[in-house]
Simulated assay, not measured.
Amino acid sequence: MSVLIAIPARYASTRYPGKPLVPLTGASGNSQTLIERSWRAAMAVQGVDRVVVATDDDRIREAAEGFGAEVVMTSENCANGTERCAEAHEVLGGGFDIVVNLQGDAPLTPHWFVEDLVAGLKSAPNAGVATPVLRCDGEALNSLLNDRKHGRVGGTTAVFARDNSAMYFSKEVVPFTAQTYGDTDPTPVFHHVGVYAYRKDALSAYPTWETGPLETLEGLEQLRFMENNHKILCVEVEARGRQFWELNNPSDVPKLEAMMAAMGLD
Rank of each mutant, 00 (worst) to 15 (best):
Q32H: 12
R152P: 06
F176E: 13
S123F: 08
P107N: 13
H191K: 08
I5P: 00
P125C: 12
G66S: 09
A79C: 13
G95R: 13
C136E: 07
P8C: 05
R59I: 06
R59A: 12
H89F: 10
S170H: 08
D116V: 04
E246A: 07
L24E: 03
A42Y: 01
L265A: 00
L223V: 05
A197E: 04
A54L: 01
G155R: 06
F244D: 00
V45E: 04
V189R: 02
E83W: 08
D49A: 10
Q243W: 00
T74M: 08
A130K: 06
G47L: 08
A158T: 12
E210N: 12
S123Q: 15
P213I: 02
W209F: 12
T14I: 10
V174S: 09
E115D: 12
G26F: 00
A140S: 12
M43R: 14
S28W: 05
T177A: 01
V51F: 00
A202R: 01
R84M: 15
G29H: 07
E76W: 09
T109E: 08
F67S: 05
L134Q: 05
A205Y: 05
A27D: 00
V22D: 02
L92H: 04
R61W: 03
G120H: 02
A261S: 07
C136N: 10
F244W: 05
G138Q: 03
S165A: 12
G154W: 06
E218K: 08
S75R: 09
V91H: 15
M260F: 00
A166G: 07
P17V: 06
G219F: 10
A127N: 14
D185V: 02
